[in-house]
Design a protein around this nucleic acid. Structure first.
Lengths: 152, 152
DNA sequence: TTGCTCCTCACGTCACGTGAGGTGGC
DNA sequence: TTGCTCCTCACGTCACGTGAGGTGGC
């Protein structure tokens, strides 16, 4: 067994695009496309022609993108805006940890709340639509079952 | 006020593509495209160049397509298959109404059930995903709120 | 008859899929 | 060194959007 020349850190760029895509439920082409349109900073600086490398944080980020895209049916344009807010939030978190001042901390936390609210609104209205569809299907099912009973 | 030369029937082809698209939450282009790929029988027989006309039934059908597409994220290929089953079900309903034989009716009803089950499965797994996302967001929100309390 | 809506091409776009031909790195 | 994965074009595809130029029907 070979030994790594350095210890693993969570932000280490040890993932190549293949395994990275697999971990995020996408394909290498999708990852390159997201980089192309600016959704994803291309695995750090990289000389032309060299391989992309990703971190575990990148995995989390893309997983989140894919999830929102699939579940909410957002365009990459819309996702891009949502992610800008997400990035802004990450910056705020950093600020948060950097300060000890309670007033400052309160200001930061209060900025985060409306962003969560916004996502919750999207998710809730989707859930309402799904539940509506589900209940209609259940009604149909019930109707058919009832008729079957009547035939017995 | 002008009088129609005939009485309104539910299956009457009185809708032109514009209002039809609006009623279904789509665009004329989308409707033509669905016809092009065979998802929709093009508003009855029609001589080349003449206007398409649709019925209220068509409205219901396309609304259902759009809903399933948006909520479940299905491709038109997958929808096409789902709609074949739907069409088969419509045929079964007709058979159902045409017969009085209880054994025959039972057979028909039992064919319909698994189809509803299938759609329910799709819808339920979607709902589970949405609910998972929602609960994660609620957790985040709760965490931020708690920290705000601690600062007070 | 005049407008408005509709018609049919046909090219554009978004979000990737799919090779082709070549290079990087364990 | 050999394979495998990665690289960059670049064209294809799905689900429409968007004109262009022309005709239908209240």
């Amino acid at each position: 067994m070979t030994t790594k020349s350095h210890t693993e850190t969570p932000g280490e760029r040890h993932l190549r695009i293949g395994p990275f895509a697999e971990l995020t439920g996408t394909t290498p082409r999708t990852i390159r496309y997201y980089e192309e349109i600016g959704l994803l900073a291309g695995g750090g600086e990289r000389e032309q022609g060299k391989h992309r490398n990703y971190t575990q944080q990148d995995v989390d980020r893309i997983r989140e993108i894919v999830r929102l895209k699939n579940l909410l049916g957002l365009s990459l344009e819309q996702l891009s805006q949502l992610l800008e807010a997400e990035t802004a939030r990450a910056a705020l978190r950093k600020e948060y940890r950097a300060t000890e001042d309670p007033a400052e901390r309160r200001r930061i936390l209060e900025q985060i709340l409306p962003h969560i609210e916004q996502q919750l609104d999207l998710v809730r209205s989707r859930r309402a639509e799904i539940e509506q569809l589900e209940s209609e299907l259940l009604d149909k099912q019930q109707l058919v079952r009832q008729r079957l009973e009547e035939l017995a």
